Amino acid sequence: MDKRREENLKKFGNHIKKIRSELNLSQDEVVLNSDKLIKATVSDIENGKRNFSYSTLLDLAKGLGKHPKDLLDFEID
Rank of each mutant, 00 (worst) to 15 (best):
K49Q: 08
L64W: 01
G65F: 06
G13M: 10
D35M: 09
N47L: 08
P68L: 04
N8W: 03
H15Y: 12
K10P: 03
R4E: 14
R4T: 14
H67N: 15
F12M: 08
R5E: 03
S43W: 02
F12T: 03
G63M: 07
S26R: 08
K39Q: 08
G48H: 05
D28A: 15
Y54L: 14
F74R: 00
T41Q: 13
L57W: 01
D77M: 04
D77P: 13
V42S: 00
P68R: 02
S21C: 06
L32K: 15
N24G: 01
D35F: 10
I45E: 00
V30Y: 02
R4D: 13
D35S: 13
R20T: 14
N14T: 05
N47A: 12
L58S: 04
K10I: 14
K10R: 14
K39L: 06
I76D: 03
N14Q: 09
S55E: 00
K36A: 13
N8G: 04
M1S: 15
G13Q: 01
G13E: 07
I38Y: 13
T41C: 09
N8D: 02
G63H: 04
R50Q: 07
N24D: 08
K69Q: 13
I16D: 01
S21Q: 12
K11I: 05
M1G: 12
S34R: 03
E46Y: 15
E46S: 09
I16C: 11
D73T: 13
T41G: 05
N33D: 15
N14V: 07
T41N: 12
L60F: 07
V30G: 02
D44N: 15
L64Q: 01
K3V: 10
A61Y: 03
D35L: 10
I19M: 11
N8L: 06
L25M: 11
I16M: 11
L57Q: 00
K49M: 07
S53R: 02
L57E: 01
S34F: 07
G65D: 00
N47F: 11
L58G: 08
T41H: 08
G13F: 13
S21W: 00
S55F: 02
H67M: 11
T41W: 10
L60E: 00
A61D: 04
K10T: 06
D77H: 13
S34H: 06
K49T: 02
D2A: 11
D59G: 03
I76L: 08
Q27C: 10
G63V: 05
N33E: 13
